[in-house]
Computed example of a mutant assay.
Amino acid sequence: MSPRLSFRLAAAAFAVLAILIATLQARRPSTTPAPASTNTDRVVTPQAARLARCQSLGAAGAEDPDCLKAWDEARAQFLGTKKVER
């Protein structure tokens, strides 16, 4: 058997295998992810409420002193550093 013929047979076998795998995947029933838990018992802290208000302000929140202070406090709490006074 010539090398050229073996290469063509190997390429054809690879193409058939790829088509077979694609067909099997397409026929496989789709799995839907589990619904996200809707935890309505979550306690909203005052800091979270302030941050939510600042987020709703959009770009104007970058100039709001209360938002800047809330973000500094959240950053300090996350990083475990001292609070920054503004």
Rank of each mutant, 00 (worst) to 15 (best):
S6T: 07
Q25P: 01
A36F: 07
G80W: 03
S56C: 05
A49G: 03
Q47E: 04
A49M: 07
L24C: 06
I19L: 15
A10F: 01
S37K: 13
L57S: 09
R86C: 03
K69L: 11
A60I: 06
A62S: 15
A70G: 00
P35N: 10
S37G: 06
A34S: 12
G58D: 08
R75I: 07
R53T: 04
A22G: 14
D41M: 07
I21S: 11
T31Q: 13
S37T: 12
P35G: 13
A22F: 09
V84R: 08
L20N: 06
R53M: 13
L17D: 03
A49H: 02
D41N: 12
S6P: 02
G61Y: 03
L17G: 07
K83I: 06
I21Q: 10
I21L: 14
S2P: 12
Q47L: 15
A26I: 07
W71G: 01
R53V: 03
P46L: 00
W71A: 08
D64A: 11
Q47V: 00
V43K: 05
A59Q: 15
A52W: 09
R53K: 12
E73K: 14
F7D: 01
R28Q: 10
A60P: 02
S2K: 11
E73C: 05
L68V: 07
W71F: 13
E73Q: 15
F7S: 02
T31K: 08
A49C: 03
E85T: 10
K82W: 05
A59K: 13
A22L: 13
T40K: 11
V44Q: 01
C54V: 04
V44R: 01
L24G: 11
S56K: 15
L51Y: 02
I21R: 12
A12Y: 01
V84G: 01
A59R: 12
A74T: 00
R27Q: 13
A62W: 12
L9H: 01
C54S: 12
R8H: 06
T32H: 08
R8Y: 02
A10G: 03
K83V: 08
V16M: 13
G80H: 05
P65T: 04
R50G: 01
A48E: 12
F7W: 12
A13S: 09
S37R: 15
A12C: 09
C67H: 06
A12T: 06
V84W: 05
G58N: 14
S6Q: 15
A49S: 11
E73I: 10
P29V: 09
R28K: 14
R86P: 03
P35M: 12
P29Y: 04
S56R: 15
D64V: 04
F78Q: 11
R42H: 11
G61M: 05
S37L: 14
L20Q: 06
T23I: 15
D41K: 10
R28L: 10
A34C: 05
K69C: 05
T38I: 07
A13T: 01
A49Q: 08
V16G: 09
R50K: 14
A12V: 05
Q77E: 11
T31L: 11
A18C: 14
P29K: 10
F7N: 03
A12K: 04
C67I: 06
